[in-house]
Design a protein around this nucleic acid. Structure first.
Lengths: 219, 219
DNA sequence: GCCGAACTGGACACGCTGTCCACTTACTTC
DNA sequence: GAAGTAAGTGGACAGCGTGTCCAGTTCGGC
């Protein structure tokens, strides 16, 4: 059998980075054709619209292709499945939060050296607050990005995990700590949707998470 | 169009109760035919085996029917989907834990009136411990029972929710409490599998949950 | 303007779902 | 013990979504 080429080299940024043609993008070797760029923009726009219009789980690859006005082959060329598309869209918004966690103002960020540092409990509570805002704004995307246990394998999840791990390490509290995954579990999009559908407000959800943060990392 | 009969009246116990032909079963009006009972036992046995042999998500209704030696129609007559079968099997084990929570010995149960009552924090930690044991023993079933957000709509989940709500209410702690759903989130089967696959032991998971319980409900 | 390569889009085969209905089997009644 | 009746059975069927494949098209460099 003749060795089939492993796959055409896709001009797609490595998983976890932006896919949108934003200013300042690195000039990669194969500089992407114009029609390809146009179609990718169409696909992402159509997908985002479909995800928010109906239950994200019911959106098929076929729907997206039709709504974007491209063929199935074109769609599959870049995105192997629905979840990848949703994640590409989500990444944009998540990156903004990641920036704020690393270098933003306290209590979300670490604060200036010299100034009084925010407590880990406060930082975790602030992180929870921001995540509920993000979920409220982009729940359809967050739901569309989930296919089974893919949640734990994304670059974004690894980032949140590292952040919480850091907060736990810098906490002076002596009791045996929960595991980072256990503190991230209440941020599951599925759970958020369930709570909202039960009539729980975003504010109440964030408040509960704040209680969690302070209980675990000290008042 | 002629009115089709809504559906043949299935001799199936209401959702959330045992489906296994155990001694002491209530003598319901239509006392179930012998061949039907035999086939149901076959179906459940085959399903349990398949779930534990491979990834529960990959087991199809067809697989179960073939393994049980029955036709598709027979299978669908009782169980509309895979999740229902898995839940029927899980119910058995969950009911045992529910019994212990209501009437078992402390710290899992409430304790005898008159005797010193276990603290809510201890009871929550004990509940967490038992749940990790249950997940460890029956993870394939727990995973098979999940299809999207069905987790929150089962009778079992409602029970855990009520239990945690009760513990939160009886806790003397003044801080704003987390919501019950948020304390149940770390028990997600998907998360448990992820942690185990990462090499985290069941004991370590339970320990982390214990820290969570004591942090939130007071040392 | 020409040529190679990337890109495109629809046809195709496959697997799973859920329904339907003609046949079979078990329990009841006489 | 035989006949009647309704529950139970199982496989065929249509529909849907997925992922692949390839002949035709379009782009961008020369």
């Amino acid at each position: 059998m003749s060795e089939p080429p492993p796959k055409p080299p896709l001009p797609v940024a490595p998983s976890g980075t932006s896919e949108l043609p934003l200013a300042g993008a690195a000039p990669a070797p194969p500089p992407e054709r114009a029609d390809a760029a146009r179609n990718r923009a169409r696909i992402l726009a159509a997908a985002e619209r479909l995800f928010s219009e109906r239950d994200p789980a019911s959106v098929t690859m076929d729907d997206i292709a039709k709504a974007a006005g491209v063929g199935r082959g074109t769609l599959y060329r870049r995105y192997p499945d629905r979840a990848t598309i949703a994640r590409a869209l989500l990444d944009e918004h998540e990156r903004a939060l990641q920036e704020k966690l690393l270098r933003g103002a306290p209590p979300l960020g670490p604060g200036e050296p010299g100034a009084p540092a925010p407590s880990p409990a406060e930082r975790l509570a602030a992180f929870y607050e921001e995540m509920t805002l993000l979920l409220e704004a982009h729940l359809p995307l967050a739901l569309g990005a989930e296919t089974g246990a893919t949640r734990f394998t994304t670059g974004a999840y690894a980032f949140w995990h590292a952040h919480v791990t850091h907060l736990l390490r810098t906490s002076p509290h002596p009791t045996p700590h929960p595991l980072p995954d256990q503190l991230l579990a209440p941020l599951s999009p599925e759970l958020f949707r369930h709570q909202r559908e039960q009539g729980v407000s975003r504010e109440r959800i964030a408040e509960g998470l704040g209680g969690l943060a302070r209980g675990v990392l000290g008042a």
